[in-house]
Design a protein around this nucleic acid. Structure first.
Length: 508
RNA sequence: GGCGCCGUACCCAAGUGGUUAAGGGAAGGGUCUGCAAAACCCUCAUCCGGCGGUUCGAAUCCGCCCGGCGCCUCCA
């Protein structure tokens, strides 16, 4: 029996509670995507992965999911609500950095990093959202929303822009706890902008006819504020009230708080019924921050020879709601787990391929009992994994169950056709839920040669062939020399009765 | 000052009132193997940061203490 509820911690009500969809069995879900001014790092992807797991779990429960995740391809200021003079545009800053010199303008830069983001997304085997709106393609909606908020008295124009008046929304602060009165006693020293009525007021529109990305508005040339884009795009694709909204924990304030204020002022309805925030991860015990420069991108780790699915596996080994310490050791462990699933697939293929599916050799009652036992056990384990996921995305438990299933499959010296079918079903189910068995975007196996220039698959195969000949001739010295040589290149050999396979030993 | 999280074996980590405290890694032993590796099997916390309390019963609830951490307008 699949669980009937999907429980998630809700930041707004500060409790774990079932997701309630406005339309039964249909989840409308919005995830804040990245600002594409550089490569996204693994911390970003921990957040997107958590969202992907929400989608996979919901679908495993039989729900329909409409998932929207934006791409912020417009700059915004590094100090968003501080005096305009103090802000520096993130895109512009990136363009003037060393890596940015290769781009002709901010539009090219944004496009380049958008493509890189989508590549990494696929490599981590993330589900493709139904819609990926780009902020620059929805400026019109953003202007209209800002205009309406001015008309309703929730926003006002100043010489530098259009600002949302937080006093007009009495429950401003309900998500983060940074209510209006508490914000006033904030200990942070903030630059005062005399154009704003209150320091906490945030920009819906910035007037700037020198900005590298600018649009024409009722207030002249300029660009939209950061928070308004998500309000506009979420509403455009998912309606006035969405079921679930996710993002990194830093998004809770100010971004999501401001989204709530704008959207609820605009529609008069709740913006999102459920809020999910993913905790930051640390790397080797240290905080990962762009300024500190100690962050890994997805491509950094793949270049070290790690399997993309192993990275995915490692990133979900600690539930999203807890801070996680990402280590290379964790990634090495994950590599082993992914290979274990591959071994399961290989054995299923061997068992399934050698016997016609119509023939059922269930003549041995003992063997038949064993078959039923394995199928039942796998089914029980999969349901355990789904249960865990439906309980606030408990990935630690889901992973444990999935590995127990792999263990059960590998325990069988050879699979009967019926067992192979049960195993294949199990692997499909686990892959649908967790996405760690095989990628939907590229064939399984070692990373392509382009990413590991020191190892050429065909050369390795040739050496393996030579070693086999040496072994058959009982020339073990030669065989071991080849094995040693391949080991130096990071290739690990695995002999089995069916022949020799090899895998890259990552981390070099 | 505000909001929030965590302290479980050598390491990561699940567990949220009641059978023998999941799972993984490491380690030790074994099977297999020409030898290895991989795979598989076995072993590996009478105990859950400390002290009180509630309860027939707590790692799990409450209080206090000790220790670690995140966010609070660059960040997912």
């Amino acid at each position: 029996m699949p669980p009937s509820e999907f429980k998630l911690y809700d930041t707004l009500s500060r409790q774990v509670k079932p997701i309630e969809t406005a339309e039964p069995g249909h989840l409308r879900f919005y995830t804040c995507g990245p600002t594409v001014y550089s490569y996204a790092h693994i911390g970003n992807f921990r957040s997107f992965l958590a969202a992907d797991l929400v989608v996979r779990t919901a679908r495993a429960l039989g729900w329909r999911v409409t998932w929207v995740s934006n791409i912020t391809d417009v700059g915004h200021l590094t100090q968003d609500d501080v005096a305009d003079a103090g802000g520096e545009d993130r895109m512009e800053k990136a363009l003037h950095s060393k890596e940015g010199e290769q781009f002709a303008n901010v539009w090219d830069l944004a496009e380049y990093y958008t493509q890189a983001y989508l590549e990494d997304w696929q490599r981590l085997n993330l589900t493709e959202p139904e819609v990926r709106p780009r902020a620059t393609q929805h400026v019109r909606e953003q202007i209209l929303m800002a205009q309406a908020l001015v008309e309703k008295g929730n926003a006002y124009e100043t010489p530098t822009g259009v600002y949302f008046d937080v006093e007009s929304q009495p429950d401003y602060g309900k998500l983060s706890g940074n209510t209006r009165d508490k914000l006033q006693e904030a200990v942070r020293d903030v630059v005062l902008d005399e154009n704003k009525r209150r320091q906490a007021d945030f920009a819906l529109w910035k007037k700037d006819d020198k900005h590298l990305m600018q649009w024409f508005s009722p207030w002249g040339w300029g660009f939209p504020g950061w928070h308004i884009e998500c309000s506009a795009m979420a509403r455009a694709y998912l309606g006035d009230t969405i079921d679930l909204h996710s993002g990194g924990e830093d998004n809770a304030f100010p971004h999501h708080e401001c989204e709530i204020a704008q959207s609820e002022a605009f529609t008069g309805k709740p913006f999102s019924n459920h809020w999910m925030h993913v905790r930051f991860l640390q790397v080797e015990g240290e905080k990962m921050a762009k300024r500190a420069g100690n962050f890994f991108t997805v491509r950094d780790l793949l270049e070290k020879g790690f399997d993309p699915l192993a990275l995915r596996f490692a990133l979900m080994s600690v539930p999203y709601g807890k801070p996680m310490n990402f280590t290379l050791q964790l990634l090495r462990d994950a590599q082993g787990h992914v290979e274990r699933f591959r071994e399961c697939e290989r054995r299923v293929a061997v068992a399934g391929g050698s016997t016609p599916p119509s023939v059922s050799p269930g003549t041995n009652p003992f063997e038949d009992t064993e078959r039923v036992a394995l199928g039942d056990e796998l089914q029980r384990l999969y349901e355990g994994a789904l249960d865990a996921m439906a309980n606030d995305l408990n990935t630690s438990v889901a992973i444990a169950k999935s590995l127990e299933g792999a263990k059960a499959i590998l325990r069988e010296p050879s699979l009967t056709p019926a067992q192979a079918r049960a195993a294949a079903t199990y692997l499909d189910q686990v892959n649908g839920l967790l996405g760690v068995v095989r990628s939907e975007h590229e064939p399984s196996g070692p990373p392509p040669a382009a990413e590991t220039p020191t190892v050429d698959g065909r050369t390795v195969d040739a050496w393996v062939g030579l070693r086999d000949e040496a072994k058959r001739a009982k020339d073990y010295a030669a065989a071991d020399a080849i094995r040693a040589r391949l080991a130096e290149a990071g290739v690990e050999l695995r002999d089995s009765p069916e022949g020799t396979t090899w895998a890259l030993r990552p981390g070099g």
